[in-house]
Nucleic acid binder design. Sequence first.
DNA 1: GATGAATGAGCATTCATTCAT
DNA 2: CATGAATGAATGCTCATTCAT
Lengths: 207, 207, 207, 207
Amino acid sequence: MSALQKSPSHERLLRAATEVFGARGYHAARVSDVVAQAGVAQGTFYLHFKSKEAIFLCLIDDFFGRLLGETLGRFPASAVADTGELAVQLREMWCAILKHCRSEAVLTSLVLREARAVAPKTRVHVEEWFSQMVGDINGYLRALSALGLVRKGLTDASAWAIFGLIERAIHYAVVVNREIEVEALADEMLQLELTGLLGDRTDVATP
Amino acid sequence: MSALQKSPSHERLLRAATEVFGARGYHAARVSDVVAQAGVAQGTFYLHFKSKEAIFLCLIDDFFGRLLGETLGRFPASAVADTGELAVQLREMWCAILKHCRSEAVLTSLVLREARAVAPKTRVHVEEWFSQMVGDINGYLRALSALGLVRKGLTDASAWAIFGLIERAIHYAVVVNREIEVEALADEMLQLELTGLLGDRTDVATP
Amino acid sequence: MSALQKSPSHERLLRAATEVFGARGYHAARVSDVVAQAGVAQGTFYLHFKSKEAIFLCLIDDFFGRLLGETLGRFPASAVADTGELAVQLREMWCAILKHCRSEAVLTSLVLREARAVAPKTRVHVEEWFSQMVGDINGYLRALSALGLVRKGLTDASAWAIFGLIERAIHYAVVVNREIEVEALADEMLQLELTGLLGDRTDVATP
Amino acid sequence: MSALQKSPSHERLLRAATEVFGARGYHAARVSDVVAQAGVAQGTFYLHFKSKEAIFLCLIDDFFGRLLGETLGRFPASAVADTGELAVQLREMWCAILKHCRSEAVLTSLVLREARAVAPKTRVHVEEWFSQMVGDINGYLRALSALGLVRKGLTDASAWAIFGLIERAIHYAVVVNREIEVEALADEMLQLELTGLLGDRTDVATP
DNA sequence: GATGAATGAGCATTCATTCAT
DNA sequence: CATGAATGAATGCTCATTCAT
């Protein structure tokens, strides 16, 4: 962390960029909108960020860094011993994810919506975050599978699918239905995740 | 189909836009790239499309129109009588969706990636397609639920989650793993969709 | 020559750039000044020239191309047989050079003044013109020397010095004293060139 | 010399400016490059120089001040009595000029190349130095002419031409051929200056 | 004198769109 | 329908300069 990165201007610009990109869309937003919102001069922007794209990438990296740190990173598969504990842990993960994303709703919505709509060269960097999350999910599933806690036959395709499920659950909580209780949504997602649409195993699904 | 839509230039432009937007990204792509790729003059573009955004919307609308027409629209819940038939129908849906998206991989990838990264005013139109698909899924689930073929308690949140699952399954088939057999992926998705991660009801999952 | 290079806009821009760069200096001049002077739109500039630097280089290349073509290129050393003919030819060269530069005084002054004050990468290209002219002078001197028409011992250093003499003679004719007759100046330069400051050999100096 | 001019920062900035302007060109060079090279802070620059242009002018003025002081100023025409002494004095002048310019090669090259490519208002000041040098040459020639040591008929045009000869001789010594001995080059220039291209009066040319 | 973060005017360049042919 | 030269508004970015510390 350089002194510059801790400066008030740096924080103000990040917050302003979140708001402006969120409201107008990254591509339609102008740097001059961001600096006006941040209350700093045009040149100050370039003291802190190399380009308009750089601040967007910074927002994205921060978003995923926090999301991983505060959610997936905290729930190791090794901590669960049986199906019941699995359900408890997954429910906690769902709650953590949804609460976290709710707490930074504008940024969450922006990232889910536009992070991949950047120039190809930049996109590869962004998509590494998605790959990493899917990789983590995949590792988690394999660990559970090795423990006999989930069925066999789950490949990385399932990890991607679970990730899609999470993405849209977040979207639902943050955009579609901002009123729903996180716990209620977590319960529904947990049930869907564990037992699918048929899901008569209600005994394990509600810890 | 108007006469205009059948004109060679119109088609060439749509195809060219798909390729160019796919390769460079919608925002980075220039109209001049598209016309160069299409082999027509700059002005010809505006005989067929009102603006750069218009051709993108046209691609998006065509994409969703075809996707709905060739997949979801063809599989009514009313046609299934029991869980076995449901599995059969869902498997067909998965295959249809994945095959269709594989057949227009570039456009599929483009739409999933960038369709929502447009100006807010345009975005509401794009997101109606997503809402419609989720609405269809929701209706389908409610019908199944009414028939007793799926469990109770599925709200529109689950419909969004299932949609996310589909989105990322498509992404997997089109971007991540272009080699995997559609049938194999459909089987894995079907199992996940019906019985979740626990999924010991293997009897219904493989029709 | 593309159709674009023959277009009126192309010519207007070159003329306008000469005037504007001449009046304000290349670096202080804005592209908007040039297009305003040319009476074309801002974007039209970039239809014809890649950048502000490109049009400057174009002016420079045109200048030297014409200068070489209309002066040095037309006077081969092989055409002179004795000292008297040499004096005649050199006098003609002086007149041709001075007349030519007088005919495009603004451009001449601009090039002599600012052509080398560009970014290093561009400068190497510009300085090739100077090197070429000096190389031509050097070749001319060597030919004369071989014919016994000038003294021995003239190296490329003398070629550079003669070039400096020409540069400043042009400067004198174009900037310092615009009224002086080209012939009178040519006579003085010829005398200086052939017999130096001492120069009592007045018999050969005035053909 | 004010205290300011003796301050280490002042000197460091002048030296840094010479190097940076020399390497990147005055216009492409940034003040931040100069202060970085000088190892001082951005604001320190403006304690010592009013503007970027001011330090360039300072370099130019210093350059010409030193050049005049160490060369032309030291060789009065009144000190020569005959043609032989003239040759001796001129040879010493050539050596002094070339040695001096060699000793500050970067600055010399910079000034000859870019000093006149400044905004018109500033240019008049810069060109006064050139005018002054030419004026001095002219005065020197007139004095020699009055003494009967050079031929009649030399006007200020010849003074400009001699100045051009000197400019390019310096350029040759500093840029084109950094290896040549100053004395050898001085001899060649002296010969050219005194007897021109024909120059059979070898008796006077080599003192 | 020295610092260096902040400033903001300035400008080259881009590119979607138009329209005369 | 087709053309493609011309348009000009829009904007990301630079960098000389200032000033509070």
